[in-house]
Amino acid sequence: MEKFLAFSEIIDWQQPEILELSKKIASGCETQEAIAKACFEWVRDEVRHSFDYQMNPITCRASDVLQYRTGYCYAKSHLLAALLRANGIPAGFCYQRLSIDDQGAPYSLHGFNAAYLPDMGWYRMDARGNREGVNAQFVPPEEQLAFKTQFAEEADFQAILPEPLPVVVTALQTQTTWDGMLQNLPDVSLEQAKNLGL
């Protein structure tokens, strides 16, 4: 479990502002499950999705997501992992491969989280941000993610990774605007996914 609690350049949960927020969110919560739900709802509702709100800059590091209060799904998952880890809750990264426009190709990765809860083990949660047609919730043991797969080339990868995928980090660090990112969303083929352990 230690790798799912680690501090890294991207999941920089030991930054003072992340530690302060993690304590604030956890205050009044009596269980790890309650803390995880509070962290999830904070990131889902308080950090604006870059595309939905057409916001810059493109963030990647957890502390930058917190500073600018905006991020694509991947960046939001980085902050949620940081808040969970700061509260001693193991957190990892999950991905789906989804149609960008719900019409088939082109496809891109969608990023979200899993947290290890004492009473049930790994539980996947999607803090992307709700909007019309998207209603992600924290309702264990049921899983309620933002999106479901519907095409043959889509995939709901079951792997839980301790660090974000390099292709995701590279995309976030290369792009500077929400519309530039939209044109360069990270993707892996189903064949590549096998090689990545997804």
Rank of each mutant, 00 (worst) to 15 (best):
F7Q: 15
W42R: 13
L172Q: 12
E154P: 05
Q54E: 04
G121Y: 14
Y72T: 10
P162S: 13
L80S: 02
A114L: 05
E132H: 14
Q175R: 15
P186Y: 11
V134Y: 12
A91P: 10
L109A: 02
D126F: 00
Y72M: 04
A171N: 04
A136Q: 01
F4D: 00
V169R: 08
L190E: 02
A75V: 00
L161D: 00
C94T: 07
N195C: 02
L117F: 12
A193N: 09
Q67P: 00
E191S: 09
M1W: 08
I18R: 12
D64T: 12
F51L: 06
L161M: 12
H110P: 07
E191R: 10
L172R: 13
F138G: 11
K3F: 10
T31C: 09
D156S: 10
G111Q: 13
M125V: 09
Q54V: 01
V65R: 14
L66E: 02
I89S: 12
G104P: 13
S22D: 02
G129E: 01
M55G: 03
K24A: 09
G133N: 09
A193C: 02
F151H: 13
Y74E: 03
E41Y: 13
E17P: 04
L182P: 01
K148R: 15
P186G: 03
M55S: 14
R61N: 09
A152P: 10
L66W: 11
K148L: 04
R85V: 01
Y123L: 05
C94E: 04
L172N: 03
S8E: 05
T70W: 11
V167R: 10
A193Q: 07
Y116R: 15
F51E: 09
A193H: 12
G197L: 07
Y116C: 10
Q15V: 08
H110F: 05
I35N: 09
F7Y: 15
L117K: 14
Y123M: 02
I10L: 00
C29Q: 14
V43N: 07
A81N: 09
L161N: 08
A193L: 11
N135G: 14
Q54Y: 13
Y116I: 01
A26F: 07
P166A: 06
A6E: 08
L165K: 14
P164F: 05
A6C: 04
A6F: 06
A86D: 01
G71N: 08
I11P: 13
P16F: 13
E20D: 01
D102R: 15
I25L: 07
P162W: 13
L5A: 01
C39Q: 06
A155M: 07
F112N: 08
I89C: 00
H49W: 09
Q158Y: 08
E33V: 03
T177W: 09
K23S: 04
P90G: 03
S63N: 12
R128V: 05
Q183T: 04
Q67R: 15
Q175F: 08
L98Q: 06
P166W: 06
M1V: 11
Y116P: 00
V65M: 02
Q150F: 04
I10P: 04
L84N: 07
A146S: 09
Q192V: 06
V168N: 06
D64E: 14
A115D: 02
